[in-house]
Every structure is written in structure tokens, then in C-alpha cells.
Write a protein that binds this DNA or RNA. Structure first.
Length: 463
RNA sequence: GGCGAGAUAGCAAAAUGGUUAUGCAGCGGAUUGCAAAUCCGCCUAUCCCAGUUCGAUUCUGGGUCUCGCCUCCA
């Protein structure tokens, strides 16, 4: 029985889908004006893992992850670059897909772009206006009136009074209440036509929060199962989504809210404003993407995750141990009937399932993988090796051939050079010229190549 | 200031009212021409102070410290 920590109640709850056997899940994706950083990688990998586990548990999942392709930062960046909004966002959407693909993130079922759902947003704003939750201010912006929505603050645990006390924003005198947020921004003369849409309130463009409310209800219905995103979206973004959706649709919006923890650098949140971020592609220049995915999944999704080279090196060593166990047994999956996959009656699989069902405890699940690797090494059992690989696949790990992983990466030497050195060393060994054999091995080691003599001959890997 | 999360061994990271987490690193042994890999064994923990309890790292209260949200942020 799957339990999910629900931010709404701050406790783990048994997961019950609205429609038996089906899960509707919406995750806040990227604002595409720059390359994704490791924080984005975490959201993508974490919720990819979530949807994989839901599928592995037998659910039919509809997974939606939006793309914000219109907002202040995009307009500003396009202006700086002297390129169109569309050209800018297309570039970074393509880059995002490259990064996500590299990390083994499956494409969501839908990736709606905000600009494609403006009519839905306008219709929702109209309903909010009809329900007396929205008003047009003197500057022509249409705002949401937080005071008129009774449940405001229920997700983030904030009250309007608390928020007011900590007010740090410059007060916008056009708003009835400083905490009101914008649904529709009036068009400005210095903005390109590309960002202006017609509406009954005049030309303009959508506020940030309304897109998620409009797109989720269009693609998943007005009431759906899971909504996810980074912990920083809890307030105000998700709080505002609730206000909009429940205010417009007059029904519960989302049953389970999930928020992943931050990636940190030197114990501080990785963020654009602090400038302490690493882009995914930067990191992938130096580390195997699967190592990065493993690094992310080795921690629980709600825990903070400290980024450093030392930690990625550690992750690489750990992942190598799993692949090494698979290497000891030739082509484990080839020996399993097609599509058989995990044997869920096997004890390790049961522990794995129990861990995953406990709020997606990938840390515990991966610990089971290591126990299984130990069993595989001891028993040389093809069945257990297949089981190890199959369980890895559930997390989007261990997909590759073990030797390919262990020999992958960039070394100074190519395969042919390495193999000829190994041959030379074997000649020396045969002649009992161990000094020469050890010299060759040492040279290879200095080039990052580790040799392993086995009964089947000498193999190598990149250390 | 308001609200929230957390402090576990050298590092990273789970779990648990009493019984081995796990990985990396370290130590000893097996194996190996010597290594590597692997196996066996070992060593390092639960921020501080009270309380509840036969027993607390785990529950309660109080400290201390860290981080986050309250502005754009995954």
C-alpha cells in the first residue's frame, strides 16, 4: 500500500486514486529562458521516479509537466539577446529535452506550453470574476482577491495576517490588498506584439500562476490526484494555484501535494539569484549522467541534497559496485524470458517494494540493491542478477551493459591501445616477466585504466 | 519578526521504543605471481539538557545550531 507525504496535511497518507487504477499527476516544470541547473535535474528525476513507481505498481498514469514559455524573465532575456520570444524558448526547450533525456527522464505524457493555453486561462479568469474573486484594477491588471478566498494559506500554513506582518514586497497601490496576485497583466507599450493577447480586459498576457490552474484542469480534470514541484513553489505559486482552481471550479483541486527538497551548494540552496548553480550540461561534461541520476535518487526526495565533486565521485564508486556485480554474470537479462521483469515474490523485491511504497524511499530501495549485489557476487546466480537489473530499471538505473558503463567515460587511451597493452602484459606474464607486466599495468593505471585478472582473462575499466 | 524542515559514525545517507541499514573511506583475513575485483570479519553514530519508559537515536518539553519560505526561484 503506497503512502505519500502530503504537504497539505504534513503527514504520510495512504494513496487512494480518484479513479481506481488511474493516476493524474501534474508537476511544475521549467521557465525556459536559460539552461536547466541541477535543481531542475532533481525535480525531473524525482518525479520521473515517482511516475515510474506508480506505473510499476500497476497504475495507468497521466503525467503532465508544463513549460512556462511566457513571463517577465523570458521577455527580458529575449530583449537582451535581440531574438524573438519563440526563438529563445524553443532553444531552451530543446536544451531541456537533451538534458532530461541524458538523465534517463522519460517524457511526460503532456508538456503543455503556457502560450498554447491562453484561451483556457482567460475563461478561468472570467469564471473567477463571475465568482467575485477577481477584479480589474486601475492599471488594467486583473488580480485575484485573496481575502475573498476562504482557504487561502492552507497549503503553506500561512495566514494572511502572518504574511502581511512579513511583507517585504513593495506595495502595489493598484491592488486592493498587497497580497493579491495578478491573473492578467495589461500590455505595455515597450513589449513586443508577440507577448500580447486580446481579452475582454484589454490586450495583455497571463500572470504566472494561472497557467498551471488552466492547463492542469484541461488535461487532468478539475480535481486530480498528485501535484508536485520544488519546495520553493509551495508559496506563493501552489497556494495561488489552489485559490484559482478551487475558486473557479468550486471543487477540491488536488488530493496529494508533493514537494522535493533543494539541491544545495556549501549548505545553501542552489539558485539563480545566489549564482551558485551548476547547469546539468556543465556537470555532464565531467560525470556520467547515470551517476548524476544515482546521486539524486540515493537521497530521499524530501531531504536536502548537497552537491559537490566529492559526493559525485562517491556516487560513481557506489554505482560501479552495482554494475560490477552485473558484470560477473554474462548478460543476465538475456537469460530471462522477455518481459518477465521483476519477480516480486523474491525477498529483496519485497523489501524494495516496501521501501518505495513508504513515500518513495529510494535511499532504502537502493540499499536493497546493494544487498542484492552482495548476494549476486556470492552466489553468481543469474536469477538474482536479473532481479538486480530489473529492480534497477524500475528506478531508471542499471539500464546499460555493465562493461559499457565500467569502460565508459573519457580516458586518454582508446580501446585498441588498451587491448594491445593488455596483450603485451599477458605475454610478459606468460614469460614470468612480472617486472614488465607490472610496469605495463602501472602505466595503464596512470592513464586511469584499472586491470582485473580473472579466470576468463584480463578485463579493464576506467577507475 | 511570522511559518516550516532538520541535526545520525571520517564522508554521504536510511531506519527504528530493545535486535547488522547501505555506499565510499579505514583496519585484519581469504583469494591473487603481485594487484584489482570479489568474499569473510572488524572499527567509527545517533547536537545538548530534562522528562515519560524496564529500556530512547527514536516519544514529550526546553535549549543550541543549520537550512528554507514569507520577492523571482525546481
Amino acid at each position: 500500500m503506497l503512502k505519500i507525504y502530503n504537504t497539505l496535511n504534513r503527514e504520510k497518507q495512504e494513496f487512494k486514486p480518484i479513479k481506481p487504477g488511474h493516476v493524474g499527476m501534474y508537476v511544475c516544470g521549467m521557465t525556459v529562458y536559460d539552461y536547466c541547473h541541477l535543481g531542475h535535474a532533481r525535480v525531473m528525476v524525482v518525479f520521473d521516479m515517482v511516475q515510474r513507481w506508480l506505473k510499476a505498481s500497476g497504475y495507468d498514469v497521466t503525467y503532465v509537466r508544463n513549460i512556462t514559455d511566457i513571463d517577465d524573465k523570458i521577455i527580458r532575456r529575449a530583449g537582451e539577446n535581440k531574438e524573438s520570444i519563440h526563438a529563445l524558448t524553443k532553444r531552451f526547450i530543446d536544451a531541456m529535452h537533451e538534458d532530461a533525456d541524458a538523465l534517463g527522464v522519460e517524457r511526460p505524457d503532456h508538456e503543455p506550453k503556457a502560450t498554447q493555453f491562453v484561451p483556457e486561462m482567460l475563461s478561468m479568469i472570467e469564471r473567477l470574476e463571475k465568482n467575485e474573486l477577481a477584479y480589474q484594477a486601475a492599471d488594467s491588471d486583473v488580480n485575484f482577491s485573496v481575502r475573498k478566498f476562504a482557504g487561502y494559506g492552507k497549503l503553506s500554513g500561512k495566514s494572511l495576517e502572518d504574511l502581511r506582518a512579513g511583507e517585504r514586497v513593495e506595495v502595489d497601490s493598484n491592488k486592493n490588498d498587497p497580497l493579491d496576485f495578478v491573473l492578467w497583466k495589461h500590455a505595455r507599450s515597450d513589449e513586443p506584439d508577440e507577448v500580447k493577447w486580446d481579452s475582454k480586459w484589454g490586450k495583455g498576457r497571463p500572470g504566472w500562476h494561472i497557467e498551471c490552474s488552466a492547463m492542469s484542469s484541461r488535461l487532468l480534470g478539475e480535481h486530480f490526484d498528485i501535484h508536485g514541484g520544488g519546495a520553493d513553489l509551495q508559496f506563493p505559486h501552489h497556494e495561488n494555484e489552489i485559490a484559482q482552481s478551487e475558486g473557479a471550479n468550486r471543487c477540491q483541486f488536488v488530493n496529494y501535494w508533493m514537494h522535493n527538497g533543494f539541491v544545495r551548494v556549501d549548505n545553501e540552496k542552489m539558485s539563480k539569484s545566489l549564482g551558485n548553480f551548476f547547469t546539468i550540461r556543465e556537470v555532464l561534461e565531467r560525470y556520467d549522467p547515470e551517476v548524476v541520476r544515482f546521486f539524486i535518487l540515493r537521497a530521499h526526495y524530501r531531504s536536502p541534497l548537497n552537491y559537490s565533486d566529492a559526493h559525485l565521485d562517491d556516487a560513481k564508486g557506489a554505482l560501479s559496485r552495482l554494475y560490477t556485480a552485473l558484470k560477473c554474470v554474462p548478460s543476465p537479462l538475456a537469460l530471462l524470458p522477455e518481459g518477465e521483469g521483476v519477480n516480486w515474490n523474491e525477498p529483496h523485491a519485497q523489501r524494495f517494494k516496501a521501501a518505495m511504497d513508504d513515500d518513495f524511499n529510494t535511499s532504502e530501495a537502493i540499499a536493497v540493491l546493494f544487498d542484492l549485489a552482495n548476494e549476486v557476487n556470492r552466489s553468481q546466480s543469474l536469477q538474482l542478477a536479473g532481479q538486480l537489473k530489473s529492480l534497477g530499471l524500475v528506478l531508471g538505473l542499471l539500464e546499460r551493459d555493465a562493461t559499457e558503463f565500467l569502460q565508459g567515460g573519457s580516458g586518454g587511451l582508446d580501446d585498441a591501445a588498451i587491448n594491445s597493452q593488455i596483450a603485451a602484459r599477458n605475454e610478459a606474464k606468460k614469460a614470468k616477466n612480472y617486472a614488465q607486466a607490472d610496469k605495463i599495468r602501472k602505466e595503464l593505471l596512470e592513464a586511469g585504466i584499472v586491470l582485473e585478472d580473472t579466470a576468463q582473462g584480463t578485463s579493464w575499466r576506467r577507475g
